[in-house]
Simulated scan of single mutants.
Amino acid sequence: MASSRSAPQPAFVLHQWDWSETSLILDLFTREQGRLAAVAKGAKRPYSQLRPVLMPFQRLLVLTTRPKAASTDEHADILLLRSAEYAGAGAALPPARLFPGFYLNELLMKLLARGDPHPALFDAYADALQALAVAPDEAPLRAFELLLLRETGLLPELSRTTTTQEPVRPGQHYRLSGDSGLVVAADEAARLPGSLCLALQAALDADDRPALRRACQGGLPALRAQLRALLHYHLGAPALRTRQLMLDVRRLLDAPAPPST
């Protein structure tokens, strides 16, 4: 775990847990130190100044320090939150986009180790939240999945096949394999056109997030299926909790009303 900070740093709250009657443990995503665990003492008190600040999807400035007894404490990797303030800027996620936001948070918590800085990914996450606040489709989600996989070294190059190193052809179709990377696809429903692979790789190489979202819009159904399979392969889990909860809510809303009594 990195040393304590001497100045506030940008951060987002990914998740929080009850620690006591008055305090919380936070999973923070910071720009300079990556994911951190920090205890926010007294944050649950009704008049705590931290209470309205420690909300998900709000850009914050946080100051953390290491507890004095960290060398002997069994919770030595948990820092103390000394201060947190709203950093402003950005549109709030509307209620209909909260589930996608929590989905991004869960991906970060499961794919990033604590104390591993990813400043470019931090910026991409902040940008994805802004796009989600105004975008009516899922392109920001697919674009962030691609950036997350690339940043963690799990995304193969999309301009050539992984095993044979043959250049991707615009008229050919491909799929993402957890074992073999990018491979030529057989007759499968969710195939990635070569033209899409090339557009995605060009946007990734240019670090152009708006262009990446535009490229994703050109093949959302196939891209969703391929990235979902690749993420599940590396996560070793059949389903993410936020995705399953979102499906359960949709089924509940689509279910016929119970008979009146």
Rank of each mutant, 00 (worst) to 15 (best):
G181S: 01
L154C: 11
I78H: 00
P95I: 14
P156W: 07
V184G: 03
S83F: 00
P156A: 12
A37T: 05
P94L: 13
A96F: 10
F99E: 14
P256W: 11
H173T: 14
A7V: 08
M55C: 04
M109R: 09
P210N: 11
L121D: 01
L247Q: 15
Y86E: 07
L192Q: 03
L176P: 00
G101P: 02
A206V: 04
L200K: 06
P259D: 14
P52K: 04
R243E: 15
A186S: 08
E166T: 14
A113V: 00
R31N: 11
E32L: 10
P238R: 08
L196W: 09
D18L: 14
T163N: 11
Q244T: 12
L50S: 09
A143P: 07
F102M: 14
E21D: 15
V39K: 05
S195C: 01
F99L: 15
A96W: 10
S6Y: 03
P170R: 11
A186H: 03
G153C: 09
F99T: 15
A7H: 09
L247K: 12
L36Y: 06
D77P: 03
V249A: 14
L98A: 13
Q130C: 13
L121A: 05
L223N: 04
S180F: 03
F12W: 05
R251H: 15
R142H: 11
L204D: 01
P10I: 09
P10D: 08
P10N: 08
Q49G: 06
L158H: 12
D205M: 00
L28P: 07
R97Y: 13
E166R: 15
V249D: 09
S20D: 15
D254S: 14
M246E: 15
Y125G: 05
P170D: 07
L111G: 00
L63C: 02
R213P: 00
L231Y: 01
R114A: 01
Q58F: 14
L60F: 10
L198P: 03
A128Q: 07
P156M: 11
L252V: 08
C197K: 04
A87K: 12
S83A: 05
P117M: 00
Q226S: 06
A215Q: 10
V168R: 05
D73T: 10
L155E: 07
Q201C: 06
A84V: 08
Q217W: 07
D77V: 10
G90N: 12
Q172M: 13
L196M: 10
Q130E: 15
E74W: 10
T65S: 11
Y125C: 10
R243N: 08
A124K: 01
Q226K: 04
D208W: 03
R243T: 12
L54C: 07
V134Y: 00
E188I: 01
L240A: 06
L196D: 09
L176G: 00
D137Y: 12
R35T: 01
L141M: 10
R228P: 02
H234D: 06
E145A: 08
P136L: 10
R251Y: 13
P221I: 11
R97V: 12
R5S: 14
A89N: 11
P140V: 02
V13G: 01
A239Y: 06
L149I: 06
A69Y: 04
G115Y: 02
S3M: 05
P95W: 15
P258M: 08
R51Q: 11
T261R: 07
L81C: 08
L227P: 00
G178T: 06
L112N: 00
E85A: 13
S4I: 06
C216I: 07
R169L: 13
L196Q: 08
